[in-house]
Amino acid sequence: MSAVLETSALAKRYGRRWALSDCTLKIPPGHVVGLVGPNGAGKTTLLHLAVGLLAPTSGAITVLGDRPAKGATQLGRVGFVAQETPLYAGLSVADHLHFGAWLNPGWDERLAQRRIEQIALDPRQRVRELSGGQRAQLALTLAVAKRPELLILDEPLASLDPLARREFLQNLMESVAEHQLSVVLSSHLVSDLERVCEYLIVLVSSHVQVAGEIEGLLASHHRLTGPRRDLGTLPASQEIIEATHTDRQSTLIVRTDQPILDPSWTVEQIGLEDLVLAYMGRAASIRGSRPAFLRVQP
């Protein structure tokens, strides 16, 4: 099976500003992929390139082995929910389902009806009367009922309260379990993604900082604490992602596939949030727009 999303040196420029640069990715099918990064990092640009709403300035992108939005077939294979879940405020839930059925050859009416029942939406209700959570659920239902192979969701959780978030993710994961969908969803919060994603892309200031299966990422990143030392003395196999020092202690986050043998380090596993923050901090300090990522030493 071809990659769900494959890019090579993909870049997008708006005027003089690069929204995405040198983006090379290859995401295998059957994953729920989290795209994280601060606001303005280029997440929406990457997703819009993937659905064909934008054309690249340079580089190449294929989605499910084909050019984004190449034709009716390709459009039917990809479901997309844009940020702020755009729906027609004056139309009812039922109207939206009719719309979905007209516009999508692969529309699964039974699935759509079942989902609407499950999330307890009244078909006669107009969208402007729905809560944010209900709107998000309706948009998800429309996207899932067209039976895509890949579902792309841009910040689907940003405007939802914690309960609505949980319900949305439950609905999404049920769809994944039922239809073996691949999903790419973006968020600026790692905690949203921890439960549901198995593959992670960290995007900061238009560059991909790290991408890979979360389990592998967590296994290859470690926090080392020990007496203060010169970083030049570390083995070449250990890539330093984050380093902080006090007058006597050094604390590092390193990436390595080798075991850490130096007995002077206390080695700890790190969580996903710390991993993402370390890469964000590194990107910010390289760019020089912010001081090096600092963390208060206990």
Binding site: H31, A177, C197
Partner: peptide, 15 residues
Amino acid sequence: TVKDVVARLAINPNT
């Protein structure tokens, strides 16, 4: 069942 766990915990079915 996988579907029950997924629907309850909102976690990835592969997990």
